[in-house]
Design a binder for these strands. Structure first.
Lengths: 198, 198
DNA sequence: CAGGGAGGTTAGCGCTCGTTAACCTGTGGG
DNA sequence: CCCACAGGTTAACGAGCGCTAACCTCCCTG
């Protein structure tokens, strides 16, 4: 697994807190002083680690998109040959759910603050997102060959909406436990695809 | 139907444009001068119609929540007795889809800028939202009696995520037409519920 | 032991933005 | 005819915020 046990670097602390604050109150609703305070330093000290507030957002969004895509590609490669498209789709769903449950702030940012990026960064993020979507679309059409491509794409976007609803599912208190929530989302996603593909 | 054929009042113009701009660039990302320009007047002229920028957002969010709840109650009352719970659920889904397709900017605002409201307004909106959710939960549990209440509530929130994904479905260009999109969303929503309720 | 860079600090500049003040203009009723 | 008011205008103020400047202090290395 190569999980990292190192202490998180200052940069990572900052990114994590910035993600949380941006998700809670929006990019423009958070000041640099607040981000600094969240990691124990104050205001302009952040500029030793980032070129500016925009750079933090950019790194967050590019990171999310890249991580999602990378994970999906890995799952696709792992399952290649050894299992059918249905298992691959299940694996994609599982990966997306893990992400939605573990990194709720990032999921929130993902489709909320994209317009605040510089043109080049926004294009990069959009490209990564599109690749991710197209990868899903291919797998979905293997499982449900009757689906036309535009329909499959719309269905994929809608299922993302479903899976990304985790920030609205109670403030992580009233949930029936992480495993149960993951299973619920998984069944609903499969059911949604099934309803349009069969 | 009592559809209104009057010309929209200035207040309504402002609210509509403000909703669009807030949805596009966020509450803090839009200046009052921009909102004014969008309706042909400039900057501070808005203060003849609203107490402030916050008041516009408040009126928008309270309006959305109230309208959604009102529509749902009406549909519930109309179908009472004359049809089974399945038809009521279909009617609720249909109403929510109409709203998501016709007022995309408002749907976007609905779960994005709630924290910017004054405490009293935010509590009001939250209360309206909760009533709306509980109304759905009751109907869902009538259709699928096997569902425990917390599970049903999570499922409802997730379906809202699915239905509210319309802003991500192409910029209203590549869709296969409004009717087809509505039908797609409807089938997926029903499939998602079916997958956890049966 | 010198010194230099990494990583902080506080002070403050400059710009943006919400809001207010003061003023103007058409229009409809007494 | 007048005048009050609805609905605009521009000027300007004040607060907040991103960012820079200038400085300080460890710690690590030659």
């Amino acid at each position: 697994m190569a999980t990292r046990t190192d202490a998180p670097t200052r940069r990572e602390q900052i990114l994590k807190e910035a993600a949380r604050l941006f998700a809670e109150r929006g990019f423009h609703g958070v000041g640099v002083d607040e981000i600094g305070a969240a990691v124990g330093i104050s205001g302009p000290g952040l500029y030793r680690h980032f070129a500016g507030k925009d750079a933090m957002l950019a790194e967050l969004l590019v990171g999310i998109s890249g991580q999602l895509l990378k994970g999906a590609k890995r799952r696709l490669a792992e399952a290649d040959g050894s299992s059918g498209p249905t298992e691959v789709l299940d694996s994609l769903i599982e990966g997306h759910i893990d992400f939605a449950l573990d990194d709720r702030p990032l999921i929130t940012l993902h489709d909320r603050e994209l317009d605040r990026l510089r043109d080049s960064d926004r294009k990069l993020v959009r490209q990564l997102q599109r690749q991710y979507v197209e990868l899903w679309v291919e797998v979905v059409r293997q499982v449900y060959p009757a689906l036309a491509e535009p329909t499959a794409r719309s269905a994929v976007h809608s299922v993302f909406g479903l899976l990304n609803s985790t920030p609205h599912l109670g403030r992580s208190g009233s949930l029936p436990g992480r495993g149960a929530t993951a299973a619920l989302l998984h069944r609903m996603a499969r059911g949604a695809f099934e309803a349009v593909g069969a």
